[in-house]
Nucleic acid binder design. Structure first.
Lengths: 184, 184
DNA sequence: CCACGATACGGAGGGTGTCTCCGTTTAGCA
DNA sequence: TGCTAAACGGAGACACCCTCCGTATCGTGG
């Protein structure tokens, strides 16, 4: 790839990340991204074939830290319930960091053709590790599926994001999910 | 209202209900509704000022039966868990009957300005009645908020609708929510 | 039965969005 | 420095929601 192309690609992704984070997916138009980045829409579309692909690239770096967050939550103090809740809260925090991302990503769970498929796998893996860790302690009620957890907590995150709920409201819902999943 | 206007209004709502049910909100354009109903878009917009208002009218009859469903679930046999699950399943069944409705309605929960505000109140009331009934039996764990339940189960419904999950997958998630809400 | 005013109708077109196409410009190598 | 493949830019195609206003129709009072 030519040097100017690399520069443009990075600048576009940076600008897009900033705009999406501030305003949310729907409120940012491709024209706006192009204009802000100082390129034509043609250039934009050569680098990112659709708006969703651009979004995917924009939130890339952010997603990559999710595994570290899972480890951190699991390594924390407290009993299984505390650690599970810590993970749930971190997960919701992640998903709601970019407005509109929670629903888009949770919607794409299980759809291999989605532009977000790679991100979904990352999230699924993180949840799987949490399930494995707690399961080996015998803390979970029967069989708990990582995908099921992704969807449940992703659903909560989507609602929290959309209705702009505070951390207490989010926590009260996560407590329900946690208690529903934990043994005893 | 003039007789021809009444006829048109009803025909439009009928056609819209059919189209929305088949294809989902986003996949139906106002032009398509107008053309299928055999009227101009102007006529469409005089009867229903926005697409959301049309959607609201299209799913009206459907929503009105929700209270009966709550009663039926509560009057069923079995313990509190069985009845709560029956209600959850009925609720998800309702919300997923029209493609795209679950997320739209759950998104509008708590937003008085939404065109779906009336429907949200209906759903909230139904959940409140379920909460009251089970609470008076002492079946619920601490304080359970009807709004919280609407959001949790609505989130599950939205995911089920979007990912076109089967009843077993839906049930496995609802079991988690139910166990998280029930005492013991 | 008719004339007329209020009501309803239809569809062109405005505004905004995503995405494509192609003539023009530029990078980078020989 | 000259040349070619790569990248650029933005006009415009297409789809969407919605508005506006000239035209047609209903239904009533004479």
């Amino acid at each position: 790839m030519r040097a100017d192309a690399v520069r443009n690609r990075e600048r576009i992704a940076d600008i897009a990340r900033q705009l999406f984070r501030e305003k949310g997916y729907d409120a940012v138009s491709m024209d706006e991204v192009a204009k802000t980045a100082g390129v034509g829409v043609g250039t934009l579309y050569r680098h990112f074939p659709t708006k969703e692909a651009l979004y995917d690239a924009a939130i890339q770096a952010w997603v990559e830290t999710v595994n570290a967050a899972a480890d951190k939550a699991l390594a924390g103090e407290g009993d299984a319930r505390d650690r599970l809740l810590a993970w749930f809260e971190a997960y919701v925090d992640f998903l709601t960091r970019h407005k509109g991302a929670a629903w888009r990503i949770t919607s794409a769970m299980g759809d291999d053709d989605s532009p977000f498929a790679a991100k979904c796998r990352t999230y699924l893996n993180a949840n799987q590790r949490v399930v494995d860790a707690l399961s080996s302690e015998g803390a979970l009620r029967g069989h708990v599926d990582a995908m099921q957890l992704c969807r449940l907590v992703g659903g909560v995150a989507a609602v929290v994001d959309n209705s702009e709920l505070g951390p207490e409201a989010a926590r009260s819902m996560l407590v329900v999910v946690a208690d529903g999943v934990l043994a005893g």
